[in-house]
Amino acid sequence: MSNKKKEPFRKTLTDDFLNAIKSEELLSGAQKVVNSAVNVLEEEIAAGILAAKKIEKKIIDVEDIRSDPDDLMNRIRRDTHEAVDLFLDALSAISKQVGNLASSADKETNSKDKPVSETKKESTVTLLETEHPLKPGQLEVFKFTLFEDSEKSTRIKLQKSHLIGPNNRIINSRALKVIPKDFNLKAKEEKEIGIQLKLPKNALPGNYNAFISDANDNVINVLLKIEVI
């Protein structure tokens, strides 16, 4: 069968199909189904990556690592070094982000004629980062756990900032997907939250930070720190 013969086939059937879905109603139906499918696929892939990471962590051979003291010391030195670097980087980023948040909260509170201290609660910042730099287009999943230690249920609505990089470079927050985003955390309940990052293919190199927080409260503060190469 030659290509010449096949060409009209593709054109005719494809055209028929496209003609069949011309009406707006059908198009929106198709889009709904396809979008719904895409969401399911992405969530499943993220869940798979999370599970694989958990297994990887479980099967690190601790005894094997301990059996070589030099290697172990090198690892500790390297990890400590990285931890200090990360801590310093994180501290400056956190100060900047918290400063931004505080000033915006300040503005909002002032506009309602309420003192800042009334709405503020004691908060901590959790740092999430990757073990290795990421490449543009790469998919990465982060996770953290929330625990409601009070005796009442709390409604949590997680919001995300853009990823802010060097020279105010921005990776749009669309690259981040928080799962679940809006939920009730019952008393004494623990819930695992996943953050899926799909870096755009045109992401420029540098260190980027994003902030995940609860829209209803300021107790949950998660700083996401990544390096794009």
Partner: peptide, 12 residues
């Protein structure tokens, strides 16, 4: 049937 065709369209 419709859903299947939409998804086949997405595949195309």
């Amino acid at each position: 049937k419709k859903t299947s065709k939409y998804l086949a369209g997405g595949a195309l």
